[in-house]
Amino acid sequence: MRIIGTADADHLLTWTAVTEAIRDAHRLPQAEIGDMLLSRDGRSLLNRGAWIEGLGIALKSVTVYPDNPRRDPPLPSVQGGMLLFDEDSGAPTALVDGILVTKWKTAGDSVLGAKLLARPDSRRLLICGAGTVARTLIPAYGELFPDLEQIILWNRSTDKAEALAAECAGNDIPVTVATELAEAVAAADIVSTATLSKEPFLKGEWLSPGTHVDLIGAFRPDMREADDTLLQRAELFVDSRRTTFGHIGEIQIPLDAGTITPDDVLGDLHDLCAGTAGRSSPDAITAYKNGGGAHLDLMVGALIRRLVEAGDSRG
């Protein structure tokens, strides 16, 4: 069994390659998936398995410890690993660093959703959050949206947003910091949220016509980032109905309250990649919930394994 760490594969990947792998895998039979989430005192153990005919089998286990970055020395908030299995024999073939898979899967999922839903002439991106995911969204959106003219960061702790912006001082696309969220949202073409918020902070009344909203952060049943008005104003899409309905508060809480109905979700990545769903007009507001299911981990993990093995054969 091959052990693949970040140093083995990170340099081999591009956001274009990741989004193409996810798009191509959505042409295969739909995945069989299963999740198990354990939580205690705000910390979580998340286990996700997937089986895609023609691609393979994967099981990813990660811990989410939100306070880890505040340790001395700081630790990643998300840690874990993913096992890949051969579909024919059932034998384990690789153990891949979970941080590596999560990094490329999470942002890759979102930028693919944005590529399929956001207006092609989008010029201004607002990222809410200043943690690990926000850091990866900057190059991901920069690669998939080369016409972006500005990336704006907003975070409840402004100093963290300023520190991340300082890291990006040499970025091809200027990275600045906003202190007034409502104004930043109103001026944005794409709004991407990557926080650990339990309460909605992004208000639908702030959005301008034509905005695309990329909702990443809420991954537990008790978490939300967008308010009811946003979900009601937007044309709503998810990466997978099966991993968001019944699992993620961003969707399930308003479903339970009757704020939205299942029919209000107009499509998922299977529909978007097939071209059977999408934005209705340039002025429509679109919202995409990144649920990050195990099938996406498998798609990215299989790509990582292929690239590493291709490098081995060349070496």
Score class of each variant (00 low, 15 high):
36 M>E: 10
32 E>Q: 14
8 D>S: 11
11 H>L: 09
10 D>A: 15
10 D>Q: 13
9 A>P: 07
43 R>A: 13
43 R>D: 11
16 T>Q: 15
18 V>I: 15
17 A>N: 05
24 D>C: 06
12 L>F: 05
36 M>W: 13
6 T>K: 12
42 G>V: 08
32 E>C: 04
8 D>F: 08
21 A>I: 07
13 L>W: 01
25 A>L: 02
42 G>M: 05
21 A>K: 04
32 E>I: 10
21 A>F: 06
43 R>L: 06
8 D>Y: 08
26 H>C: 04
20 E>H: 12
26 H>D: 00
7 A>N: 12
28 L>N: 02
32 E>F: 10
28 L>V: 02
38 L>P: 00
40 R>P: 00
16 T>W: 03
5 G>C: 08
13 L>N: 01
26 H>E: 00
38 L>H: 05
21 A>N: 06
25 A>M: 03
29 P>T: 00
13 L>Q: 02
33 I>L: 08
8 D>E: 12
6 T>C: 06
40 R>L: 12
12 L>S: 04
39 S>N: 01
34 G>W: 13
34 G>I: 14
16 T>E: 15
34 G>C: 12
10 D>T: 10
15 W>I: 07
15 W>A: 07
16 T>R: 15
32 E>K: 09
40 R>K: 10
5 G>S: 09
14 T>D: 04
34 G>Y: 11
23 R>P: 01
21 A>M: 10
19 T>C: 14
22 I>Y: 00
26 H>R: 01
34 G>K: 12
5 G>R: 14
6 T>F: 10
32 E>R: 14
39 S>W: 01
16 T>H: 12
24 D>M: 09
36 M>D: 09
35 D>N: 14
9 A>F: 09
20 E>I: 07
11 H>T: 11
34 G>H: 14
8 D>M: 10
28 L>Q: 03
29 P>A: 02
14 T>S: 15
40 R>Y: 08
28 L>S: 02
31 A>T: 05
36 M>S: 09
41 D>M: 03
22 I>E: 00
29 P>E: 01
37 L>P: 03
8 D>L: 09
6 T>Y: 09
16 T>D: 14
25 A>S: 14
8 D>G: 08
18 V>L: 11
10 D>E: 15
9 A>K: 10
38 L>V: 13
39 S>I: 06
43 R>Q: 14
23 R>K: 15
16 T>N: 11
39 S>T: 13
42 G>W: 04
13 L>A: 02
21 A>D: 06
41 D>F: 02
10 D>M: 08
24 D>P: 03
5 G>Q: 11
7 A>S: 14
37 L>S: 05
14 T>L: 06
8 D>P: 07
14 T>Q: 03
40 R>T: 04
24 D>T: 13
35 D>M: 10
